[in-house]
Design a protein around this nucleic acid. Structure first.
Lengths: 207, 207
DNA sequence: GTCTATAGCGAGATAGAC
DNA sequence: GTCTATCTCGCTATAGAC
């Protein structure tokens, strides 16, 4: 109980997380089906058999990675400061989406690309979380449409379009490239704002 | 030479295409790495060994599918009637992209998701074709920015954003759903047009 | 908690009969 | 042109020593 009372095997304590990190990176790079448990073990520096002390099987490893990502996404979304004004909320969502996703490109990639490799019940759970996320955006678009701040012919399609546009950043953005992430946020916010037919907010006049 | 002069084995003549169709469907559904040559053979109704009469190996099968898709895309793009006006050209591109891609969802899916499984030289060839397609859009956005018809802070990012938004249609659109494809085109064209800060064309006033 | 060894299986690809 | 049979390899997962 006391500090230093016993010295734990330092590597054993962190093997679990390291397995998940290695699996995340390898699944994102080569695809779930193309990555073997041996490769993951080699990346971590243990033998293949040792992985099964930390995960019941390969499928659970994939599902846990996706679930952790989606849970973190929904938690972070819920932790945003509340925004009554739909335009402010849309800007908040836009910047949040770009920042959150660009910092987790491997997890994002896996969560979109490896849905096919989930067993049905696992698939259903991840899909339900994704629908929650989309519903948040659709809700704020609907509020903005009601107040007349937004012009959207169809809130569901607009939500799909905005999310697809924003998630696309991950396919080309690399740190240290031509544009800073803050600049990318500004540019995309401009396009998102225009795409839903919204004008600038009064406190930041420019249009 | 004369008609009916000899009766060809009817199934032999079409086995090659049927193999590519089966591979396309299976790769799209389960992923390249997860699909076995035996599965493809079973879908076609031949034995696994027979596949190698039509493709040197599994990798070539994947590459041929992607190359055929990208070639068809670039050919169809080049075959569009020329458009001098950037706004008309953008509408043409928007509707073309949605129509072409929604009719080939399996090939689109594969061409975006299985790039990781291409050997380096094959990857480079597909990527170069994709860049040609993006360059077409970026070029017309740049022309519209020069004429003042578009307001785009960055033509490259705008091209990425528009393509991501439009390709996203494939993730949810299903024939016979709530909206017709023509209606989807209209809605997305509206969002694309707004996102680049363009007004309606004079011959179709409404904004 | 990690190792070695291996069971059990299915993969890609080829050889040769028909 | 398609078949059966097979080679060789690598996979997931487990058993049991340490």
């Amino acid at each position: 109980m006391g500090s230093m009372a016993r010295k734990k095997n330092s590597s054993a304590e962190i093997t679990g997380p390291r397995i998940r990190e290695a699996a995340l990176r390898l699944f994102a790079r080569h695809g779930y089906a193309a990555v073997s448990m041996r490769q993951i073990a080699q990346e971590v520096g243990v033998q293949a058999g040792a992985l099964y002390l930390y995960t019941p099987d390969k499928q659970s490893l994939l599902f846990d990675l996706m679930q952790a990502h989606m849970t973190a996404l929904l938690d972070a979304l819920a932790a945003l400061p509340p925004c009554d004004d739909p335009l402010a909320a849309l800007e908040q969502f836009t910047r949040f989406h770009i920042r959150f996703h660009s910092a987790r490109s491997d997890a994002v990639f896996i969560s979109y690309m490896e849905l096919r490799n989930l067993e049905p019940e696992n698939f259903a759970r991840i899909e339900s979380m994704r629908r929650q996320y989309e519903a948040h955006l659709e809700g704020l678009l609907a509020r903005g449409a009601m107040t007349g701040q937004f012009t959207v012919p169809d809130t569901k399609l607009a939500a799909f379009a905005v999310i697809a546009m924003l998630t696309g950043v991950n396919t080309w953005y690399r740190e240290g490239g031509r544009l800073s992430l803050a600049r990318v946020e500004d540019i995309y916010w401009d396009m998102v704002r225009r795409s839903v037919g919204a004008r600038m907010r009064p406190d930041r006049p420019d249009q």
